[in-house]
Computed example of a mutant assay.
Amino acid sequence: MKSNLQLDARGRLRHLLSLDGLSSDLIIDILDTAEQHDKLLAGPEKKLGTLSGRTVINLFFEPSTRTRTTFELAAKRLSADVLNLQVAASSTSKGETLFDTLKTLEAMQADMFVIRHESSGAAHFFAEHAAPGVAILNAGDGRHAHPTQGLLDLFTIRRYKSLPGEATRDCFSRLSVAIVGDVLHSRVARSGIHGLRILGCQDIRVVAPPTLVPVGIKEMGVSVHHDLEAGLDGVDVVMLLRLQKERMLGAFLPSLGEFHRDYGLTRARLAKLKPEAIVMHPGPINRGVEIEGDVAYGPRSLILQQVSHGIAIRMAVMSLILGRDNGERR
């Protein structure tokens, strides 16, 4: 990833394609801005005029509920005009290229595209060819990256694991985080690892069957565990991943039942964790596979809070990129 493509000449966000290459100061700025927006969302008046007159197009080539909806809500909370493009019903289904789609929509005076695509690098392609002043936000590209999911996970961890008055880097430097499940196919895992490392987390564990661990993952600064109990020993945060059966073309697992037996977070396993350990999951959940239903919405789980924090994070990213031109930032 060419990190400079994401930044303008002053080092500020121009696009958001990946957390890889961003500075800790910039990520903390996004988290702090999201805190301000989260306070707004908790009050009676939930709307700002930051992006009034701006047009945001959600361009989703893959199905999505949480991500698309929270991006739409975030843009509307900032007073942007929002268009949700149904790609299956668009000209791309007739053979139009990504480049032609981008240029056609740019001609409609769009200011920002939120893009989800099944191909790794698709968001980067759009950013390389976008007109000056048009921003690209990656809402997930293949197995590569899901930066706003990574940011909302960092936001959630900081919100629930930092001590009063503690600096963000100090918080993450003392935490142990386990990422459990289908790491091989997970853009969420990659973005999470990048973000945790940038903020100083020293103990990041990947816990998965050997068939679901990417080659070279240790080079990202993580330890690899194939035994769940050992991988979860002493951790502060458990980040579960969905089994992405739609991306599996071979026999990665004997069966879903065996995966749950060996790697599912059950009530019995939860009881063995540190009392203050938290449980996270990007959704959607495969109940009875990576997590038991009672655990998913139990008192240790922050899954629903993650969804809510996604709105604040996406508002923060949009306002930092487009809002400063409207006089709202910097």
Results as ranks from 00 to 15, higher is better:
K2T: 15
L5G: 03
A9H: 08
A9K: 07
R10K: 14
R10F: 12
G11K: 00
L13N: 12
H15S: 03
H15Q: 01
D20Y: 10
S23E: 07
S24C: 09
I28C: 04
I28F: 01
D29H: 11
I30H: 09
E35N: 02
K39P: 03
L41R: 10
G43L: 00
P44M: 08
E45I: 08
G49A: 12
T50V: 07
T50F: 03
L51V: 05
G53V: 05
G53I: 04
V56Y: 00
L59T: 02
F61S: 07
T65I: 11
T65Q: 02
T69D: 06
T69V: 13
E72C: 08
K76N: 07
L78C: 03
S79V: 03
S79Q: 01
D81F: 14
D81P: 10
V82Q: 02
L85D: 01
Q86W: 07
V87N: 09
A89Y: 02
T92F: 13
S93G: 08
K94E: 03
F99L: 13
L102T: 00
L102C: 03
M108V: 05
M112L: 13
R116M: 05
G121F: 05
H124F: 03
A127G: 05
A127E: 00
A127L: 01
H129V: 04
A131D: 13
V134I: 13
L137S: 12
N138Q: 05
N138D: 08
G140P: 15
G140I: 00
D141I: 04
G142T: 07
P147R: 08
G150L: 05
L152H: 04
Y160M: 11
L163S: 01
P164S: 05
G165Y: 00
L175H: 14
V177M: 04
I179P: 10
V183F: 07
L184Y: 11
L184T: 09
S186N: 10
S191P: 15
S191C: 15
H194F: 13
L196K: 10
R197S: 13
I198S: 01
C201Q: 00
V206C: 14
A208E: 02
P209W: 10
T211H: 14
T211I: 15
L212K: 08
L212Y: 09
V213L: 09
V213A: 11
V213Q: 15
P214Q: 11
V215I: 15
S223C: 03
D233A: 14
G234A: 12
M239H: 14
M239L: 15
L241M: 06
L243I: 15
Q244A: 09
F252K: 10
S255W: 06
F259Q: 09
D262I: 02
Y263R: 03
G264N: 05
R267T: 09
A268Q: 11
R269E: 10
L270I: 02
L270C: 06
A271E: 14
K272V: 04
K274W: 12
K274S: 10
K274A: 10
E276K: 13
I278L: 15
H281Q: 02
G283Y: 07
P284Y: 04
P284W: 05
R287V: 15
V289C: 12
Y297N: 14
S301N: 14
L302P: 00
L302F: 09
Q305D: 08
Q306R: 07
Q306I: 07
V307M: 04
S308E: 10
A312D: 00
I313E: 04
M315C: 01
V317T: 11
S319D: 13
I321V: 12
G323E: 08
R324S: 06
R330K: 11
